[in-house]
Design a protein around this nucleic acid. Structure first.
Lengths: 216, 216, 216, 216
DNA sequence: CATGAATGAGACTTCATTCAT
DNA sequence: GATGAATGAAGTCTCATTCAT
């Protein structure tokens, strides 16, 4: 049986209960190769050979190479870009969870970064593909806007209302956070993967930068 | 006659004096299509058709598709990544040119951004290709390190010696600058090209962020 | 699955048990066309059309056109030029097998000629390609030297020791044999393929020539 | 002006009086490259580059690549294969010129061999092309038959009538001569060009072989 | 005469995809 | 479910040839 993208996603999330070993190997190999050489420079025959399956098996499971790509990055997108974030904060709750702006930024940065670190291969693929795939781009950008910005807005507006942070556009704050984490991740995992990095120190720099920049 | 990469670069810089009209059209079309659809998704026959030349003409001039890519991005690399930056500052000169840290950051940000804006198509291609091309990556990273960091070090160390900025690694400062400009450029030109942007306002935010972050 | 050259050779020898029908047709067609028009003047699309397969099939099996050529001629080379000749003659055995020089030459000429006759197409290809392919030439010449000359030397030296044949260089004897057989084969199969030939009569001439020339 | 094949031939023969320097360089380069790499593997652009002329110049002079090939080998064919041999021997004259069979064979072998040696490059090309070019083959074979065999017949029949040589087909005699010279030339110039050869010794072997074989 | 930019047909090759087993 | 032989469209690249200068 062929998996739909959503099936794939769900199956992955649900501990791959129904995914056969071969199917998993295909997916893992795809992520490896797409991440190392790029989607367009990876042939399905290469994936098959390295995954140790017949070429036909890939298509039995994923239908097309395109769908194999989506199956590789969808779980990441669902988890990272479009997570189901609780959006019904009350101000009082925000205060409990994030006693100050710094604690909010701290959690945000570490959470985002650790997710990226665990999935840097898929992130690599996604970055590459988003550059030329309108559909993907729109999906991501819209997802970010609706899913993430909404809950961000809640929190940031709360801090603004408490005169804790400056009255700058929320988008700018988010962009600044993502730019600096992204910059570090790209440097560490792509541009100079052989360097020595002290994540904690680097993230603290970023944290301080953000807090400094927007705190009142 | 076939152009070497360096010829190409020089010719491009020297206002394409010796480049035939067809050759120029090929290069322009390549940049357009590579930037729009990606190198791997652009066929030489498509380039030929749109440029209004025979496919053979492309190969007469550029030899291989690979070389066409390099010819498209080399001028950008030479100008942006590996410019000949004056490196023989005396402290007194730095003081004259950049009376304070802010003026240094200001010039830097505006200069880098305007260059990016003028060459966002090539930058798009370069970003995409650098993700999977070791050679290109190494060339860029090494170039940045040797050509740019050296002169940056001079200026930043001067500011540090004057107790004008904090004693943080110069690499961090540079990364912060590039991450934030890059984040904005990617948002504006790739992720959300239909949005309205007030460059001046955005760059001022970035400038303030940097100055705030590292000034003592 | 793609065959290595040695696989090809073995498979061919072992009655092509594992070679698919299409694969065999490709090989046969290649030999026909290479032999008729030359390697360089035969396109893979022509081979595909005549063999009744898709062009891709050729490359699935043989990888490159070059390898298709090698696969066409390798079995011949292994059998004709580099056969495993028993080399552990004792003088007494030689006497048994070849009671006189004539019987040796007789067997040699008929055996070589019949092999050539059965494989004149491949021989045609080989002759043509050896003219411009250093690697092939070296392989053949070295193979002839080491595999064939060694066992020839044994026998010829024996005849010399018995004062049966003249004391001329063995290389000269071998060259004379090959030149005269080759001359006849080229005349019959290439230069004047429409003539009427009485192989037996012609070979007897050659046999007598050789025996006459070198017998004491 | 474009040369016809015959013009070319004549011009060459007539000491290239009207052939421009460029034209000569083209022809020399062609022979070099055709002989080294084969006609099909030599591009006109390569010839042009090495000869130091523009590609167009080749076609101005020779029209097509095919004609360039013919212009390269035609003089050789005219001189070697189709020479104007005097055919009006009287028996008494033969006796004067060739007092015995050996002197006839001697002159023949040395004359043919020296011609081959001087023109081994063209001979290489001719051998290669004759393998797949019907027209060329027919021209050569017919030429040999009519021009050469006729005069050979005269001489050989004379020797037969005098009971000097055996009554074997003249074709066999000629083939034997050519095979053995050809075998040596191919060995020396193509198969093992790095070997040391004593032409005189080798030719004497061949001479003795022929004389022995056919003398009564 | 000579040039060399330009051509376009056709070469070799790759690869996602299908399907009989 | 798994296989892998087979496909054919499309890709990159070569090259003999033309023609305006």
């Amino acid at each position: 049986m062929q998996y739909s993208i959503l099936d794939l996603y769900k199956k992955d999330i649900l501990e791959n209960k129904t995914m056969t070993a071969k199917c998993k190997r295909i997916l893992e190999t795809s992520i490896d190769l797409f991440s190392k050489n790029g989607y367009a420079n990876t042939s399905t025959s290469e994936i098959a050979k390295i995954a140790g399956v017949a070429e036909g098996t890939i298509f039995k499971h994923f239908g097309t190479k395109e769908n194999l790509l989506l199956s590789s990055i969808m779980p990441f997108i669902f988890d990272y870009v479009l997570p189901e974030i609780r959006m019904d904060f009350e101000d009082v709750e925000i205060k409990d969870i994030y006693p100050d702006f710094k604690s909010f930024i701290h959690e945000l940065i570490y959470e985002r970064f650790s997710f990226m670190s665990e999935n840097y291969k898929v992130a690599h693929i996604l970055l590459s593909e988003v550059l030329y795939r309108e559909e993907l781009r729109v999906k991501i950008v819209d997802g970010l806007k609706s899913n993430i910005m909404d809950s961000f807005d809640k929190v940031l507006n709360y801090f603004k209302s408490q005169n804790i942070i400056k009255d700058v556009p929320n988008g700018l704050i988010v962009r600044t956070i993502l730019s600096n984490i992204g910059g570090y991740v790209i440097l560490k995992y792509i541009l100079n993967p052989n360097g020595n990095y002290d994540d904690d120190k680097e993230l603290k720099y970023i944290e301080k930068l953000i807090v400094n920049a927007f705190s009142l």
